[in-house]
Design a protein around this nucleic acid. Structure first.
Length: 597
RNA sequence: GACUUGGUAGCUCAGCUGGUAGAGCACGUCCCUUUUAAGGAUGGGGUCCUGGGUUCGAGUCCCAGCCAGGUCACCA
């Protein structure tokens, strides 16, 4: 009996497994489930419980076998089948383990030394597929074609895969049929990782970046800490938060937009240096530079100022880049960026003068607005002097700063948590490092004058009252901490994702986050929605169609236009050639109003 | 949010002025004892993103929507 001939048998057999399946299986999926059932009939567990001890990796073999052919004569390794070439009683396959791919050679009479050739003829040739995970035992040799290959004596099925994998071919460094659709890659990152090895490498590099930074900080005896993600008062940055609710406490909580105010409390508490790798959450627009959740490393060091912090940033980033690339130069997009110390430094006024030829430091608000207009920078009346400077800088300078550059001395209005400049009125002791036209870190001499801090919060409250949704909220407990007394402190925040983008040469933040936020796909509909409709009095035959019409649940139905719903149902009835009478328009209205109950 | 490009088989894509949905890989069957992306033969596989409209007829044209990419804006 051929495999396709007993499809119907398989279907009955496999029904319990498909309880939650929403769509019918494609032919290839059906064939795999059929193979799964056949394996079980042969008393082969497609998902064995015990571990599989390996003693080699594909990379070790490829690296060490050529120089010593006596090695790897009793190897055991495991991986996913990525390709198969079957010919009569001999076959080649390719498996991929974490370190790479290696070819396997199967010979029928060695896999099956006795009379029973089932393991080769049936299990290997017919019941295994690309995507399955197997373990193999055997010895390494080189084929006539010069390919390092494992001669398999024994194999074990470790996991049967039920879905076909995108098959990417490669020859002489050229890739064919690459799995490239970004939507598919991000939504199903596991597939991306399986078939695009360079993606696995990028994320390893990101992990190395974090490890290298942590190492640098721990070597200086800085304390790694953890502070709340759920915060009753959000603060430490200008951003819109995500809001949630704690049932038992009956209180609103926010996902943190920053951890600054908590880390400073720890400095008040007597630690001299604390840092945290923090996931922060900002409820704002998304772009290739912005994901709603992102990672930031924040660091606070007592008895230091922002001048000192610039030195630390240079040293730390230079070390990280060296750890990752073995050199201080990194290619990113069009540019080669050199992180070698020391980095260029500009004051904000200096940078504006450098790029526009105009010294604006002595201008008042009116002159500055006029200047901005001349330079083609958009302004509006609500912008004060500080905001204007920021706009001009963002428009005329930031995009041109490709090599790592410190910009220092920001307007006080933009920086309610930074200490006033020791010499220059109206400015604060703050710097950002700009690289590849984007900010990669933000730091200041932290404001520890409690009276000044309270006044700055008051200004923010005023902004909030005027409707600025990102104005900071007054955090009374934080002020109490500052009133208790915080030593002079230098603080730093580094955007890990943006740094990773540069160091991994990725133009989009989605490429250095495993699971970037995506808009949920509209599914074909769920059983839950259908159940809801039935409970609400919709006849079963129509309940399913409502889901199919893109109305996921009862709430959506309640707010839908009855005429449109009626039209959609009639359309679907016609399209699917259903042999049931159309619903009356009144009937549909009743469902929506919920009067049919 | 604006503009723009795209959505067709498991994957990568073609499909002309509107006329019975195609290729390669993958998959099934048969043949074949060492292949280098692809051995040979043969066969199956589609909600052409969704819904309307125009038309004798829509993958194709029009409208609306959904999802994604890019650019810009907003935003750090």
């Amino acid at each position: 009996m051929s495999r396709s001939d007993n499809t119907h048998i398989f279907l009955t057999f496999a029904l319990p497994f498909t309880r939650k399946m929403k769509q019918k299986l494609s032919e290839q999926e059906a064939i795999r489930r059929e193979a799964l059932a056949s394996l079980r009939e042969l008393d082969i567990d497609p998902y064995p419980a015990e571990g599989y001890d390996i003693n080699a990796s594909s990379r070790e073999i490829k690296e060490n076998f050529p120089s010593d052919n006596s090695l790897f004569q009793d190897v055991k390794l495991a991986g996913r089948i990525m390709g198969r070439r079957i010919m009569g009683s001999a076959s080649f396959a390719e498996i991929q383990d974490e370190s790479g791919r290696i070819q396997l050679y199967f010979n029928r009479d060695e896999i099956c030394p006795g009379e029973d050739k089932t393991m080769y003829n049936t299990v290997f040739k017919r019941l295994l597929d690309i995507g399955d995970i197997i373990g193999v035992k055997g010895f390494v040799f080189t084929t006539k074609m010069g390919e390092i290959t494992i001669h398999v004596k024994e194999f074990t099925i470790l996991c049967k895969s039920l879905r076909p994998l995108p098959v990417v071919k490669e020859k002489d460094g050229r890739v064919y049929d690459a799995f490239t659709d970004p939507e598919q890659r991000y939504r199903h990152r596991y597939l991306d990782l399986i078939v695009n090895p360079e993606v696995r490498e990028d994320f390893r590099r990101r992990a190395q970046l974090i490890r290298s930074m942590r190492e640098f900080l721990l070597n200086r005896n800085y304390l790694e800490v953890e502070t709340p993600v759920l915060q009753p008062i959000y603060g430490g940055a200008a951003a819109k938060p995500f809001k949630t609710y704690h049932n038992k406490l009956e209180t609103t909580l926010y996902l943190r937009i920053a951890n600054e105010l908590y880390l400073k409390r720890l400095i008040v508490g007597g630690y001299d240096a604390v840092f945290e790798f923090a996931k922060d959450f900002r409820n704002e627009g998304m772009s290739r530079f912005h994901n709603p959740e992102f990672t930031q490393m924040e660091l606070y060091v007592a008895y230091r100022d922002y001048e000192w912090m610039m030195g630390l940033v240079e040293e730390m980033i230079e070390k990280i880049v060296l750890d990752l690339h073995g050199t201080t130069s990194v290619k990113t997009g069009e540019h080669i960026i050199d992180f070698k110390r020391p980095w260029k430094r500009f004051t904000m006024y200096g940078a504006i003068e450098h790029f526009t030829g105009q010294d604006i430091s002595e201008m008042d608000e009116g002159e500055m607005r006029a200047f901005a207009k001349r330079e083609g920078v958009e302004t509006d009346e609500s912008m004060g002097r500080g905001k204007l400077i920021d706009e001009i800088f963002g428009e005329k300078c930031e995009p041109h700063l490709i090599q790592p550059t410190f910009i220092t001395d920001y307007p006080v209005e933009m920086s309610p948590l930074a200490k006033k400049h020791r010499e220059k009125p109206g400015l604060v002791e703050r710097f950002e490092a700009i690289c590849n036209g984007k900010e990669i870190c933000n730091a200041f001499s932290e404001l520890n004058d409690p009276v000044d801090q309270r006044a700055r919060f008051e200004e923010q409250l005023e902004l909030g009252r005027r409707g600025d949704p990102e104005a900071m909220v007054l955090d009374e407990d934080f002020l109490m901490a500052i009133e208790t007394g915080m030593p002079p402190t230098a603080g730093l925040g580094i955007g890990i994702d943006r740094l990773a983008m540069i160091l991994c040469n990725k133009p989009s933040i989605q490429d250095i986050l495993f699971f970037p936020q995506m808009r949920p796909e509209k599914t074909g509909g769920s059983d839950e929605g259908k159940e809801e409709f039935i409970r609400a009095g919709v006849p079963e035959q129509w309940a399913g169609l409502l889901v199919q019409a893109g109305i996921p649940g009862i709430d959506a139905l309640k707010s839908a236009n009855p005429n449109k719903v009626f039209n959609q149902l009639c359309g679907l009835r016609k399209k699917l050639k259903l042999d049931i009478p159309p619903p009356g328009p009144e009937e549909v209205k009743d469902w929506i109003k919920g009067e049919s109950q």
